[in-house]
């Protein structure tokens, strides 16, 4: 590691912290969300310099991109809802659990019928392996957790937009 590289890292770390402080101190929520994206970009550059390009790409695309979109959507969607819409949502509460038995049956069938081979076949020390090897062999169990978490996120996004569908249905009924 050269001295210049070290100084550049420290400069980027300072910018990273400055962007974080700006995010916290700014009064407008939209500017705060943009500040968060800038913090992510600084972290991405640091990750690239620390020879972690894949993590950098994930940070840039997911954290600086997707999460900023989620925040801006949340800020724009926070508007009042009418009482009639709340009652309509309560009436439909039980309908959400219709597919639960089917999903439980499918999950049980996959878990019992198909062996998942979760044992660790890699005996190579982790510092000598590539990221692909670590993810697919040494940390295979993490991938299953990630898949489950992504599914949870899908349901989170459905929750994010579910009332909008209710409003659209109401508008259709009024017509």
């Amino acid at each position: 590691m050269t001295f210049d590289f070290n100084m550049m890292n420290i400069f980027l770390l300072a910018l990273f912290l400055a962007a974080g402080v700006w995010t916290v101190l700014t009064s407008r929520l939209l500017i705060s969300a943009i500040g968060l994206a800038v913090t992510s970009i600084m972290l991405t550059i640091l990750l690239f310099l620390m020879k972690a390009p894949l993590a950098g790409v994930f940070e840039l695309s997911v954290c600086a991109g997707l999460i900023t979109v989620v925040f801006i959507s949340t800020i724009s969607l926070t508007k009042p809802v009418e009482k009639s819409e709340v009652l309509q949502l309560k009436m439909k509460r039980l309908k959400r659990f219709v597919f639960l038995p089917l999903l439980l049956f499918l999950a049980a069938w996959v878990l019992f019928a198909k062996p998942l081979h979760l044992t660790n076949p890699a005996q190579v020390p982790v510092e000598q392996t590539t990221l692909q090897h670590v993810l697919w062999f040494a940390r295979r169990f993490d991938l299953i957790g990630q898949i489950l978490i992504i599914l949870t996120g899908v349901f989170g996004v459905i929750v994010l937009f579910k009332t909008k569908t209710g409003q659209a249905e109401k508008q259709d009924n009024e017509r």
């Binding site: 993590a55 954290c63 989620v70 990221l131 990630q146 929750v159």
Partner: peptide, 24 residues
């Protein structure tokens, strides 16, 4: 770094899901 990258990717996945659910 390979192990650290796998942990970072896992963290990012968890992070985005937490934010999506919390935003909802």
């Amino acid at each position: 770094m390979a192990l650290a990258q796998s942990f970072i990717i896992t963290l990012i996945v968890i992070e985005v899901v937490i934010i999506a659910v919390a935003a909802g």
